[in-house]
Amino acid sequence: MSLVSTPQQPASADYFQRSARAQHLSRFFAYLLFIVLTMIALYPLIWVATNSFKTDLQLFEHSWSLPKEWHWENYARAWKFGIAKYILNSVLVTVVAVLINITISMMAAYALARYQFKGRNLLLYFILGGLMLAPEVSLIPLFRILTTLKIYDTYLAMILPNVAFGLPFTTFLIRSYMLGLPRDYEEAAVIDGASALSVFWHVIVPLCRPILASAMLLDAMRVWNEFMFALTFIVSDNLKTMPLGLMSFAGALREQWTVVMAGIIISAIPMIALYLLTQKQFIRGLAAGGIKG
């Protein structure tokens, strides 16, 4: 069956057979390898998921088996305890931060990809340099800046630093993509007398859609999972995002592990769903030139 893909084999019968056997073997091992890897990747979550339906006692006695009865009330308890609130906060912070970030990055990437101006390289490094910086370095001063701006312990205290530290990568992605775009449409638009902003809005943004989808997904993953800023800049339980909320949730429930496990599963579902729904576009966007070989 493997012959289909390799029709140009040398004619020698001996070689033909050996190579077919080798291909079978390598195919077998490749599948085996990836099945094992998939199990390693998924089993921890599956283990948490099955145990989230047990009682604590069952968890300790038989953590391998499927639950005997399904204790959905673990989920009800987790939900009631505020997981829903944390997820909602995460959605809000993620959506707003990603939108602001993408808008700003698009504009910056456009200027850097299409305009010739003094200090362009300097500004390019100014923005992309952020890729290399550890957010920890800024932590203590940031904290004081946010306090001075009176936005400590608000959504903005998470949104703004997240935008700032996400901006370099999204700008990098979008700019790389723009560099590969043909200039014809823009030139046509300029000849028609369109302003810079309308070229940007009506020509560039639509052309960039594939990379925007990928960049948004990558950025959303990052913001959704962000931990340190939320840990340091948020006190109110009502504002906590999911990563932090889950931590205080686990802390407050102490040893009620099955409920904590239910909470883990609830928290994991939104991002898994988002990825599985968008994965095709995601790969396409990246392939379309975001990251080059």
Partner: peptide
């Protein structure tokens, strides 16, 4: 517009 959006949010988040 961006700024207004941000400020609105800040107001929402203000305890």
């Amino acid at each position: 517009l961006l700024l207004v959006a941000a400020l609105l949010l800040a107001a929402c988040g203000q305890k």
